[in-house]
Design a protein around this nucleic acid. Structure first.
Lengths: 210, 210, 210, 210
DNA sequence: CATGAATGAGGATTCATTCAT
DNA sequence: CATGAATGAATCCTCATTCAT
């Protein structure tokens, strides 16, 4: 808010700012061209820094790549955390989180490429990120299960359920990005998702809710 | 030493054989080391051919990469086609297909890496492959829907349903690969999957089936 | 002598010729600028070849550096071999070899830098080369010793003698290079060397020869 | 904690101390890793100073490198000076100097690498150092010659003799370093050296001494 | 004077692609 | 058609040096 803080940056703050600039630049370059084409040249150029500066902050290119998803993923999860508070049951939590994610993804369009290519370009980071997500999901599912919200499943099945739901969600997210223009159609996708996780394929809602 | 039919290869057949050898070699190298490390050197070496021969069959490396998933994916789909015949409803078709896939994946361990890295390394091929799969899925779902097997959903929702189910299935497949050793645990994963798509999260099976 | 053999170079001969060109180019660049400044860029440029061609012949820059002294050293030793034949005693062998070396060094001015910097830049090659030289020296000394030409020394001392003589010779060589212009002064250096190894410091020639 | 004289350092003394620390650090780093790997980073780190401080004392890295051998060589020569006093003839001076050097080299193990790599990394310093050594040698030889100790040589030959003897001595030194463990074998090397410079190759000691 | 963050020139190496044989 | 030698653009990384604090 205070517009004129710029000259107040101390030495250490500038270092930190450069590091952040490099991370943000990397994230954007990867979003546009993929990990493979994200040369250090391109990253430092976009950050407005000299090539050599990169190596004052990261030992290797891979070190940075392995950092991006954890850092940016944590920012995302923090953001989603807030959105979910106050939801009554698991499905509501899930659908609210989805909406919050959509808003966030609109501002951070590089995120999907960063995430998906990490599977190949930064596998350990990818696993860590998925595990972070799964962890929250798992806890959320467990709470619901303990309240009796998941009558069809045994406790031991929650683990598998976690990953099945994450997989679907990932698809819905991808669709969201693909159809970023039309808010209508994405609403339909969410609704179909809601029905599938609520009632499954076979049961007619009316029968089940009866 | 055994002459075994070698001289029977006509000129054109030899060309075809070399092309196939390159495709198979590529698929194996990628399975072991990923697209990024699948240099043309390595591919031609494994195919037992000269480096330059590659360019007799493919204009660029990317052209081959873009070919692999469609070619190998089609082989897979042919294989699965047969397994599904005779199934009575959608869920049975799906579960039978899964089993058939597991058998096939055991013999073609390179497939998952080929598939997943294609998302990054050969995006157009990836999309085409997903589209091929979706096409069959969609038709299968439509048939079921027409028979009234999916009472909760409208016709327009089948498209979304297709991708949601593919996403989950992909996860189950990945789990299968990860746990290649233990057949037990994978059966549990399938069972959870079956319940989720059959009844959803909320409904207790007994209630629904009643 | 036959001026028009050039087009007769077979495929394999051209490869060999390129390899030789790289070695010769390296040797010259090192002679002029030292190992440290002998970048692959410079070497391939002087050889009239593309940068990448280097790596078809040598795995790394160090591999080439480790090759140079052995290769060129062997050429030198072959050259000296011939010059020594027919000499009667050790000292005559030594002095004749020196002259032959001087003639060779005039045509191969890069040799000294190649040799001396190898101590730092290619230590293993350096050791091998010194050992090659020592080997011949040692044998030559032993033959003389067996003929009673070295009355002051026991057999066990020949090893040390070998290296002491090599050290001095190296200096005389270095002087030769430094004074490449004047043939007179180098003759004086040789003469002083001859007297030192013949009579030592203390003995007057006349007394000893009496 | 112990205040030991630290506060006594004046401004100028502190500057001097830093400069000395850099020189000593450089000498040690070079002794361990060679000139080529003696980055300014490493040198300043070992000196316990900031990287930039280097440039308060030396204009360039090369300037420091060119300083080291002269500085440390002078320290060595001062040390040897004392050892030689009282020797009666040239050969005794020489052998006493050798022993003194061995003792010094044991405490300053970095010296040989500093010296030998200087030939490549700091050629002008190398020449200056050799010249310093030669200067003392030359004077020593001249004194002996004037006393008639070198009957076989004319005055003009002393120059060459100087360098021949330095060369051999250098070899004996190198051997000393290589065999740092065994005092016996080094004594044998010295003895062979003594005989060579005393009697030459041809003369039997008894005959000559008769 | 001391510091260390920033810089970018320079160098080794890889690999898709071309082309003469 | 098959081959593999030659090519050079592109990339990562190092490190001496500069300069603002």
């Amino acid at each position: 808010m205070q517009a004129t803080r710029r000259p107040k940056l101390s030495r250490a703050e500038k270092v930190e700012a450069n590091r952040d600039a490099l991370i943000q630049a990397a994230v954007e370059v990867i979003g546009e061209e993929g990990y493979f084409n994200a040369s250090i040249q391109k990253i430092t150029q976009r950050a407005g820094l000299g090539l050599g500066t990169f190596y004052r902050h990261f030992e290797t290119q891979q070190e940075l790549f392995d950092l991006l998803l954890p850092v940016k993923g944590a920012e995302l999860l923090d953001h989603l955390q807030k959105a979910a508070t106050g939801a009554s049951d698991f499905i509501e939590v899930e659908l609210r989180g989805m909406e919050a994610f959509f808003r966030w993804a609109r501002e951070n369009p590089w995120f999907f490429r960063l995430l998906h290519e990490a599977h190949v370009a930064a596998p350990s980071a990818y696993k860590r990120h998925i595990e972070n997500i799964a962890e929250r999901f798992r806890r959320s599912l467990l709470r619901s299960w303990e309240k009796g919200e998941l009558p069809a499943f045994e406790k031991a099945e929650l683990e598998t359920l976690t990953y099945l739901l994450i997989s679907m969600r990932d698809y819905v997210y991808a669709e969201y990005v693909a159809r970023a223009d039309s808010d209508d159609s994405i609403a339909d996708v969410i609704e179909t998702y809601r029905k599938l996780i609520t009632f499954g394929l076979r049961t007619s809602p009316t029968a089940a809710e009866a």
